[in-house]
Design a protein around this nucleic acid. Structure first.
Length: 467
RNA sequence: GUGCCUAUAGCUUAAUGGUCAAAGCUCCGCUUUGUGGAAGCGGCGAUACGGGUUCGACUCCCGUUAGGCACCCCA
């Protein structure tokens, strides 16, 4: 069998380094680079260049998705009467320990904490709700018309093991409605999130909803659940044994087969709800029906944050839960404000992840356009041309016309190439001759036609052509 | 935290254990010293790191590191 032939050979390769016969272009300033007499290269200590585990860069070519998301969120928020709030990226660590909940995974293993030199313990926010509730109390928002409807967006941090749809620094948007106990608020939050997804053209997502009761009825249910599981103690996995002690509600979403067998027979929350919770849940579902928002009753969904009461819900892509996890998660938290020292104040909220939604947008091949204004491009030759171009560039910029440039390039060829890449509609060429004669060459990049235009008429002419 | 998979240039990929690691895209330049898109040519640029086996390792083995995926949990 003939081995793959080596095509080229004997090329000097390497060490041809070329001693740069190139221009040395006068310029008395510093120019001590690239001299042939190599002064032996200094050892540069290399450091690893890699974003920290679980973080990622949002590169220019992806920004369109992020811009679209933010815009949609802002619009929908406004339509539903939510006001923007921004809270610090870090807070007192206790805010989360108490708020999010000591027993939750978020606190137990995912929270980023750090101490200041003064010894204060802080945590990077793993979610928005505690910070917003803190702000509500701190700024006496109970004196504002209730409910206070707020939204925010930005990075949150969880020290998780990264995988599909999961990051350590990721972006969420969050809606909170504080100060209304009515199920209307629950539904409005759900509605807002659904509208955002719809406006982003996401097809095929499913709302799962449940009620986990309140401090009156939830303990009853827990008791019953624990009792039931005690009977089956020998049939459950190690993790579930732990859950049985620490967080019984979570028993319900164990994925192990042997545990799954026990779940269907387990008591369900709905049957234990007190009258108030039952009524609230009923109302919520009725309102959803009325608004023709379809949902799946999921008696097994309990969610992982301690502060939830009554309504909990999630939105997943597709017909069943799978893939990259929940797109949206939220619920009611009627006791959190009080827990933080405020007056008893009911509240409900939800959050969604940017990265997950964007990955769905890409997966569903939804087109997101970058809005690009038509652009003109400055092409300059020689010192005088460059100066004139620079000046003209400013004039166009001030008039709000997008101008591209490649001032660092000298040849017309490479500049036109750059103009072409930028998809400029018009190139304005100023060389030595034009600069002296106070003219500009206007080149239509589509047709290739050129015209010489007096400098003082160029603005008008360009405006006309861009229309 | 546990398990599985992966690691070659900025990106996508190639190289039965055997010369100097090959290509496409991108980028820079030349073919045209004042004219882009096409074509041709040239240039920059890589075996993650450390050991081992071998006459010889991108290739096989071990370790480290990093990444992906799954579990846990969640956006």
């Amino acid at each position: 069998m003939p081995r793959k032939k080596q095509t080229k050979r004997g090329r000097p390769k390497k060490q041809t380094k070329r001693t740069k016969p190139k221009k040395t272009r006068g310029r008395p300033k510093k120019s001590k680079r690239g001299r042939p007499s190599k002064p032996k290269k200094p050892k540069i200590k290399k450091i690893s260049v890699q974003s920290p585990k679980g973080t990622h860069d949002i590169l220019p070519e992806n920004q369109k998705y992020w811009i679209k998301m933010r815009k949609t969120i802002n619009n929908v928020a406004e339509e539903y009467g939510f006001k923007r709030i921004d809270t610090p990226i870090f807070e007192d660590v206790n805010l989360y320990i108490k708020g999010t909940g000591q027993s939750t995974d978020i606190i137990q293993k995912e929270i980023y904490t750090f101490k200041t030199k003064g010894g204060d313990a802080y945590a990077l926010r793993p979610e928005f709700t505690p910070g917003i509730v803190r702000s509500y109390i701190e700024h006496g928002m109970k004196k504002r018309p209730q409910p206070v409807k707020l939204y925010t967006l930005g990075p949150v941090f969880r020290h998780d093991k990264p995988q599909a749809g999961r990051y350590r620094q990721f972006y969420q948007f969050n809606f909170e409605s504080i100060g209304d106990q009515s199920s209307l608020s629950d539904v409005q939050i759900i509605q807002a999130f659904i509208h955002i997804l719809k406006r982003l053209k996401i097809k095929n997502f499913t709302l799962y909803i449940n009620s986990i009761g309140c401090p009156i009825c939830a303990p009853e249910y827990k008791k019953a659940l624990v009792q039931y599981y005690r009977k089956h103690r020998n049939d459950i996995c190690v993790d579930c044994k732990k859950r049985l002690k620490e967080n019984p509600l979570r028993l319900l979403d164990c994925k192990k087969t042997k545990c799954k067998n026990i779940i269907p027979e387990a008591p369900q929350v709905v049957d234990f709800l007190c009258d108030e919770c039952k009524e609230h849940f009923k109302e919520t579902l009725e309102l959803l029906d009325e608004l023709e928002i379809s949902y799946i009753l999921d008696p097994l969904m309990v969610r992982g944050l301690d502060y939830y009461t009554k309504t909990v819900f999630e939105i997943w892509e597709g017909d069943q839960k799978s893939e990259i996890g929940a797109l949206v998660g939220g619920g009611r938290y009627d006791n959190l404000v009080e827990m933080f020292g405020g007056k008893p104040t009911p509240a409900v909220g939800a959050a969604a992840g940017f990265e997950r939604i964007i990955s769905i947008i890409k997966k569903q091949d939804i087109k997101v356009r970058e809005k690009k204004k038509p652009e003109i491009f400055m092409v300059q030759l020689g010192e005088m041309g460059k100066r004139r171009s620079l000046k003209l560039f400013e004039e166009f910029r001030k008039k709000g016309i997008r101008v591209g440039e490649a001032f660092s390039k000298d040849s017309m060829k490479s500049q036109l190439k750059a103009a072409d890449k930028r998809k400029a509609k018009i190139a304005l060429i100023i060389g030595q001759k034009e600069a002296i004669e106070e003219n500009v060459i206007l080149r239509d990049m589509t047709s290739g036609n050129q015209e010489v235009i007096p400098m003082n008429k160029i603005m008008k002419e360009v405006k006309k052509r861009l229309k």
